[in-house]
Simulated assay, not measured.
Amino acid sequence: MSDTTDTSPDAVVDVPGEQAADMEAEAAKPRAEKDWEAEAAKWKTLARKHEARVKDLVPAAERLRELEDAQKSELEKLQGSYEEALGAASRAQHELWRERAARRHGLDDELLGFLTGESEEELDERAKVLATKLAAHAEEARPKPGPAPDPTRGQSPPGGGSTADQFAALFAN
Results as ranks from 00 to 15, higher is better:
16 P>V: 06
97 W>Y: 09
109 D>E: 12
113 G>T: 08
111 L>T: 13
8 S>N: 09
52 A>F: 04
50 H>M: 10
120 E>V: 00
21 A>V: 12
131 A>L: 04
29 K>Q: 07
128 K>V: 06
104 R>I: 02
58 V>T: 14
27 A>K: 02
100 R>E: 09
58 V>N: 13
114 F>H: 05
101 A>T: 01
109 D>H: 15
11 A>Y: 02
2 S>E: 10
106 G>Y: 05
128 K>F: 12
90 S>Q: 05
14 D>L: 10
167 F>Q: 01
144 K>L: 15
167 F>S: 02
127 A>W: 02
68 E>W: 15
170 L>F: 00
7 T>Y: 03
146 G>V: 11
90 S>M: 04
102 A>T: 04
26 E>M: 12
139 E>N: 04
95 E>F: 03
144 K>V: 09
161 G>C: 15
55 K>G: 00
6 D>R: 00
103 R>N: 07
51 E>A: 15
17 G>L: 03
15 V>K: 00
86 L>S: 06
38 A>K: 12
131 A>C: 06
36 W>Y: 07
153 R>Y: 06
37 E>N: 14
62 E>W: 00
56 D>W: 12
83 E>A: 00
51 E>K: 05
97 W>T: 12
136 A>P: 03
137 H>Q: 15
158 P>C: 06
130 L>S: 06
33 E>D: 13
22 D>A: 14
105 H>N: 08
158 P>F: 03
93 Q>E: 09
153 R>C: 13
6 D>G: 04
22 D>H: 08
157 P>Y: 03
106 G>D: 14
67 L>T: 04
155 Q>C: 07
56 D>H: 11
53 R>Y: 12
140 E>H: 01
165 D>S: 02
117 G>P: 01
145 P>C: 06
21 A>M: 05
34 K>H: 09
82 Y>C: 14
106 G>E: 12
5 T>M: 11
153 R>G: 05
165 D>H: 01
139 E>D: 05
11 A>K: 01
72 K>W: 10
35 D>H: 06
15 V>W: 00
51 E>L: 11
136 A>N: 07
152 T>Q: 15
96 L>Y: 14
141 A>P: 01
172 A>T: 09
168 A>Q: 09
99 E>V: 01
59 P>M: 02
166 Q>G: 06
110 E>W: 02
159 G>I: 07
60 A>R: 02
31 R>N: 04
150 D>W: 04
19 Q>Y: 14
15 V>M: 00
63 R>Y: 05
10 D>F: 04
28 A>E: 15
10 D>H: 03
24 E>Q: 11
26 E>S: 07
49 K>P: 01
51 E>W: 05
112 L>Y: 11
100 R>M: 12
171 F>E: 14
164 A>I: 03
95 E>H: 08
57 L>F: 14
119 S>N: 09
90 S>F: 00
139 E>Y: 03
72 K>L: 15
143 P>H: 09
96 L>I: 09
70 A>S: 15
117 G>T: 02
16 P>Y: 02
115 L>F: 06
109 D>L: 12
103 R>I: 13
134 L>V: 02
127 A>L: 08
124 D>R: 08
173 N>W: 00
77 K>I: 09
138 A>S: 08
105 H>L: 07
162 S>R: 08
119 S>D: 08
